[in-house]
Design a protein around this nucleic acid. Structure first.
Length: 463
RNA sequence: GCCCUCGUCGUCUAGCGGCCUAGGACAACGGGUUUUCAGCCCGUGAAUCAGGGGUUCGAAUCCCCUCGAGGGUACCA
């Protein structure tokens, strides 16, 4: 078997790596690893109008954050440089012209106005919107000359007859009638290739063995297959992943869901949890396990077992899984993650001491703040006013006790009993006075960390 | 409209002709542990397997049709 080489080909047209790209990246990565192959990144920056400055850097950074390491890419180079399509324009031009020579493509001089009008008519007549082929029969020689001075594109000449079939590794054979396939533009008038020319040429040149991409590409795959045929190249294997969806079942979009990996980083999710969750969207561990690492996935992975139905992305379940990972993380490591998440705002040693008290209550790193901020800063706001009398009881009990859980508890219960009050109420009052909130980590253990002096000051300040 | 893909609890799924009066997880709800909230443990409800026809002794599982959902239909990817 030839070397397995997979790739993801993101476009720098959004603010960051799309979570759907992270999902296909994961599968491509795992598949490559499974067979000891390479996972590469190619940037498809062929749409100048949608280009977003800094997008590529953030995409690469998010991939690195997730731990999906690539063997070749625009940042680290590789044997098939360059890995940015905008730097490969000559290559596409050459191959597009080769297709013209072979009669499988032609120059098209139609203006976008004409094309728009044409489509409008077709729509009115209930016809499929397709290029009408006006430039199809232009003489190649004269077209070639005109192409020097007039803006034009190069279109694929799709056969009028026949059927194009391809095999999808997870869905089986899929066929399309050629007469329904449009004469796709391959090279735009600005000299940039369209996606279709770009992918085929680069995947071939970069020796990509398996194309694992989103389901939205199924309908354009026959165009790609035709291109492989016309070039006389051996096509790679195709596999189309089910699309991630919004709760309303439409394709996952930023209107309805956080879609950027950066959004998830900011919400305090862990990369391991995101990857694990994404994995379960498309694939099930043969043992039925829900929590598993990328490494475990590599061992048990099977492309054929990829799901065919498009899953709805459920943030609640991701949150649950993230909580599971949080609890699995060693506190020495977690302390650094929390420290970094809050940009060093909280003292690391103190963070570490508070972790056992809050970890069971957290689903994301972002929840640490509301749970534990009182350890670092005296509360300025109180969820509700405190009862002076009850606080007084707690205060009196704590003033003269040893500073450990059992002694504190005994003292408070004793003092409460003397006053004829309920211990439960005093504990709650104490909690609000110390933390400003009615819910939080275990009280007495928190006081142990806070220390007697600070506790008593807080009690005297509470109102 | 046309083309393509898909269709098991609210969600993610197990299931590959009898083990299914359909199992698990998240979510929901109830209970226990408890000074709060979590966590943990126990339990409850939740899918006439989209619908209809076949095939078969027997179908969630195979075939056909219908319906539904999604994707595509750009000089965007």
């Amino acid at each position: 078997m030839n070397t397995v080489r997979t790739r993801i080909a993101p476009s720098p047209t959004g603010q960051d790596l799309h979570i759907g790209n992270a999902y296909t990246a994961l599968i491509n990565y795992v598949f490559a690893k499974k067979y000891g192959g390479e996972f590469v990144i190619r940037i498809e920056d062929t749409d100048k109008t949608r280009f977003v400055e800094g997008s590529e850097e953030r995409i690469l950074a998010s991939l690195a954050w997730l731990g999906l390491r690539h063997a070749e890419g625009p940042d680290i180079g590789g044997p098939f440089n360059p890995y940015r399509q905008s730097e490969r324009l000559e290559v596409y031009k050459k191959y597009a012209e080769e297709l013209i020579e072979k009669g499988h493509a032609y120059y098209c001089f139609c203006t976008s106005d004409r094309l728009a009008a044409m489509r409008k008519d077709q729509e009115a007549n209930h016809e499929a919107p397709m290029y009408d082929g006006r430039c199809r029969e232009l003489k190649t020689q004269s077209s070639k000359l005109n192409a020097q001075k007039e803006p034009c594109v190069i279109r694929l000449r799709v056969p009028d007859e026949g059927v194009t079939v391809f095999h999808d590794e997870i869905r089986g054979d899929i066929s399309f009638e050629n007469k329904l396939i449009d004469d796709q533009v391959l090279l735009k008038s600005d000299g940039y290739p369209t996606y279709h020319l770009g992918v085929v040429v680069d995947d071939h040149l970069m020796k990509i063995s398996h194309i694992i991409r989103g389901e939205e590409w199924i309908s354009s795959t026959p165009k790609h297959v035709l291109l492989y045929q016309f070039f006389g190249w051996k096509p790679p294997l195709f596999a189309h992943m089910p699309l991630l969806r919004n709760p309303d079942k439409s394709k996952l979009s930023k209107r309805k869901n956080p879609v950027w990996v950066g959004d998830y980083i900011n919400k305090g999710f862990l990369p391991e949890a995101i990857l694990n969750y994404l994995a379960t969207m498309a694939w099930m561990h043969p043992d039925g396990k829900e929590i598993f690492s990328v490494l475990e996935m590599v061992g048990a992975f099977n492309l054929l077992a990829i799901q065919t139905t498009a899953p709805i992305f459920d943030i609640e379940k991701l949150r649950w899984m993230n909580g599971e990972y949080l609890r699995k993380t060693q506190s020495s490591k977690l302390k650094v993650q929390i420290f970094d998440f809050y940009n060093g705002k909280y003292d690391q040693n103190l963070i570490e001491r508070t972790i056992p008290l809050v970890i069971e209550r957290m689903k994301t790193l972002a929840e640490y703040r509301s749970l534990a901020e009182f350890f670092f800063i005296r509360p300025e706001e109180f969820e509700r006013p405190v009862d002076k009398k009850l606080v007084g009881i707690a205060s009196k009990a704590l003033e003269s006790t040893e500073w450990n859980h059992d002694a504190m508890e005994a003292a408070i219960r004793l003092e409460t009993e003397k006053a004829g009050m309920k211990a439960k109420d005093v504990f709650m009052e104490l909690r609000v006075a110390i933390t400003g909130k009615t819910v939080g980590p275990p009280l007495l253990e928190s006081l142990e960390i806070l220390g007697k002096e600070d506790t008593l000051i807080r009690l005297s300040l509470a109102k």
